[in-house]
Simulated scan of single mutants.
Amino acid sequence: MPIKIPDDLPARRILEEEGVVVMREADAVRQDIRPLKIGLLNLMPNKICTETQFARLIGATPLQVELTLVCMTDHVARHTPAEHMASFYRPWADVRAERFDGFIITGAPVEKLPFEAVTYWDELRTIFDWTQEHVHRCFTICWAAQAAVHHFHGMPKYELPQKAFGVFPHRNLAPCSPWLRGMSDLFPVPVSRWTEVRVEDIPASSGLRILADNEESGLCLLDDPNHRMLHMFNHLEYDTGLLAAEYERDIANGKEILLPRNYFPGDDPQRPPRNSWRSHAHLLFGNWINEIYQTTPFELQEIGQAA
Rank of each mutant, 00 (worst) to 15 (best):
A147C: 03
A148V: 01
A148L: 04
A148Q: 05
H151T: 02
H151S: 05
G154R: 07
M155H: 06
K157V: 02
K157N: 07
Y158I: 09
E159I: 08
E159G: 10
L160W: 07
P161T: 00
P161F: 00
P161W: 00
Q162N: 11
Q162L: 12
Q162R: 12
A164K: 02
F165N: 13
G166D: 10
G166R: 02
V167C: 04
V167R: 00
F168I: 05
P169T: 08
H170T: 04
H170S: 03
R171T: 13
R171P: 12
N172E: 13
A174H: 08
A174R: 11
A174L: 05
A174C: 11
P175C: 01
C176I: 00
C176M: 07
P178W: 08
L180G: 13
L180I: 07
L180V: 08
R181T: 00
M183P: 07
M183V: 14
S184P: 07
S184K: 06
D185V: 12
D185N: 11
L186A: 10
F187S: 13
P188V: 00
P188Q: 00
P188A: 00
V189T: 06
V189P: 10
V189N: 08
P190R: 06
P190D: 12
R193L: 01
R193F: 01
W194A: 13
E196Q: 13
E196S: 12
V197E: 03
R198A: 02
R198Y: 03
V199T: 12
V199M: 12
E200R: 11
I202Q: 10
P203H: 10
A204R: 13
A204M: 14
S206G: 09
G207E: 10
L208D: 03
R209N: 15
R209T: 15
R209E: 15
L211D: 13
A212F: 05
A212N: 08
D213T: 11
D213G: 10
N214W: 01
N214D: 14
E215D: 15
L219Y: 06
L219E: 07
L221D: 09
L222V: 06
L222I: 05
D223F: 06
D223A: 12
D223T: 02
D224M: 07
P225G: 01
P225V: 00
H227C: 04
H227G: 06
R228L: 13
R228Y: 09
R228M: 10
M229N: 08
M229W: 11
M229E: 14
M229H: 10
M229V: 04
L230W: 08
H231Y: 10
M232W: 02
F233R: 05
N234Y: 13
N234F: 09
H235Q: 05
H235N: 07
L236M: 03
L236I: 00
Y238P: 13
T240S: 14
G241C: 06
G241A: 02
G241F: 04
L242F: 14
L243Y: 14
E246K: 08
E246Q: 11
E246F: 09
Y247R: 07
E248P: 15
I251L: 15
A252V: 09
G254W: 08
K255N: 15
L259M: 03
L259E: 06
L259F: 01
